[in-house]
Design a protein around this nucleic acid. Structure first.
Lengths: 166, 166
DNA sequence: TTGGAATGTCAACAAGGCTGACGTAAATTG
DNA sequence: CAATTTACGTCAGCCTTGTTGACATTCCAA
């Protein structure tokens, strides 16, 4: 692999070794990424699945079950089990769709918002520390690489949400 | 939050909104990150847990069970279930430790290496495409942010491995 | 009015985590 | 040398969160 001089810009960052480091970085970082919410959830009757549901309902209030299914990429049976406990515990409420009455528009209750806040405060705190430490340039690169790593359909989901409410 | 002029360098990248985007980027990107190996594994009797074991055994040939436990962060019962199937299927072999006979040194067999190659080729291909698309600057930032996001102990694991065999 | 869409639900199952308890061989230490 | 600790394996049982398949309800739309 003698590609050191491919025009001027080094391609050393594309070696298998560098890629392997990137892979392991993703692995270890994701553990950190989920660690704080996991700690909060443990003990309560909830898990990561509940966190995800709560996050995206908070993110797009009034979203439908079908929407959530598309974003989370699980079966409706699986999601339903989670949603049911959230209804029962009064964290989420479902209002019958105004336009299409088959749909349920999902909203967090005050209690749900409280938990959401606790979870996302913890997760953001870690993210903020990492961002601050790495600096704005690095953050931009971080986002670029992650975006390029997504499946095209997921990227659309992400970008659809991305400009949500700035 | 009127912090636009905090000395000159903008802190806009630390807003809750930007952090939320980073969080969702991690979520969606991780799905992409695991998608290709998952596809290969499905159908075989293996899952993501087997992939992780295979990856780190390949990464550090001769590593011990205890080492693997520390890196993967699971219980020995859980790891053992996975290792047992890998032994039985002849993908991994355990040699009694030369120095300390209580330890088992884990190695991939030829068959194990073949699967490892298939899995990591797929994962690296996606990583390579993302890296190439984002460029070396972005990759550097990507790695910086991920590293800052890890738990300190995990970061040590990562860095310990990082310079492994350059 | 009829087909398809959006949703809920029951049942059964699998992967992959977990805890607790126990066993065995080998190293270490008093 | 005896006692303890370490490294590992294993049995049993539990939980979360994913899956498939089947079926019911409600309601929109052609």
């Amino acid at each position: 692999m003698a590609e050191n001089a491919t025009g001027g810009e080094s391609l050393l960052y594309l070696t298998d070794e560098q890629l392997r480091k990137g892979i392991e970085a993703m692995f270890f970082a994701y553990r950190g990424f989920t660690a704080d919410p996991d700690r909060i959830l443990e003990g309560m009757d909830y898990g990561r699945a509940h966190h995800r549901a709560i996050h995206f309902i908070h993110r797009s209030p009034g979203t439908t079950v079908g929407n959530l299914l598309a974003i989370l990429g699980v079966t409706k049976q699986s999601l339903n089990r989670v949603l049911r406990t959230l209804f029962d515990d009064g964290l989420v409420e479902a209002r019958v769709g105004r336009k299409d009455k088959r749909e349920r528009n999902l909203h967090l209750t005050e209690k749900g918002r409280a938990l959401e806040r606790a979870l996302s405060d913890a997760q953001r705190a870690r993210m903020r520390a990492a961002y601050r430490q790495a600096g704005p340039q690095a953050v931009q690169g971080f986002r670029q690489v992650l975006e390029a790593m997504m499946d095209p359909e997921l990227r659309r989901q992400y970008q659809g949400l991305k400009e949500g409410r700035e």
